[in-house]
Amino acid sequence: MDGLWEGSALGATRTVVSVSLGSARRDHRVRYRLADVEIDIERRGFNGDVEAARQAIAELDGRVDAIGLGGLDVYLYIGEDRYVIADGERLLQAASRTPVVDGSRLKRTLEPRAVRQLAAHGPLPLKGLPVLMVSALDRFGMAVALEEAGCRPVYGDLMFTAGIPYPITTLAELQKISRRLAKEMTRLPVRMLYPTGAAQESEPEARFPEEYERAALVAGDFHLIRRYLPASLTDKAVLTNTTTAEDRGDLARRGVRWLFTTTPLLDGRSLGTNVLEAAMVAAMGRRPEDLAAADFEELLDRIEYRPEVVDLQQGAAGADGGH
């Protein structure tokens, strides 16, 4: 072992709980071996109830190695700007001893890396590919990486979050709009910004189907993608993170060919980024505020990270389906 693992003990099992504002129907437990550390992971959904989630975090504080915060982002990193979602910050503050992470730090490292690997080794050429990112403000790093790979993006933040028929087509415009909106919008209740609880389970209602139709790759947060899915997505690809076997079945029925997930598939589901970040923090035994992008890069190197690639029409992992 090297210095990366300052607080971890070889052979010790770590415990991570993901407290999510999402549906309790997606709750599960899984054991994950991250390099040399065994990690018990539990996901608990609170159906959009922010206060119940806050209480759960307070009760877990000091009793587990790391807590993931799912179903919302706390921090949005847009270029050099950082915005804090008020509801999320209140949840972070419910714990004082156990690290609580929302996945946003890891996302900045993991997602660009996933895109670069897909560009180099994935089944689709990304250069010139029309992409719909249903929201980019929560995954700015992915947006930058997709542009660098030569994709032709549409950012759907205004369309899918606010119902405003205004496709954003450049990162510069995305940043300009975010500077006007993000500081205030992040103060709104999270349920107004993002599907939580029952909204994650309701039947999709197609919104701006022409944008899904135009795209060859649909990218972004899975709950937001799913909420507005059109009936048919024949031969398209989806790049996201949190999916279950049921989600994959749904995408396959709609004709999606490729599913790329930025997080590992475990027991038939891909982890939330918050869960993976919490697992990494637990494995490294360090406070998240002490971790730099290089620490995550080093750990990703160590586990030979690759995005998952699944051919949904074959029902089997593709050649590059790794971690």
Binding site: R180, E184, L188, M192
Partner: peptide, 8 residues
């Protein structure tokens, strides 16, 4: 939500 966006 729309009015909030437009005002901002």
């Amino acid at each position: 939500m729309k009015l909030d966006v437009f005002t901002l």
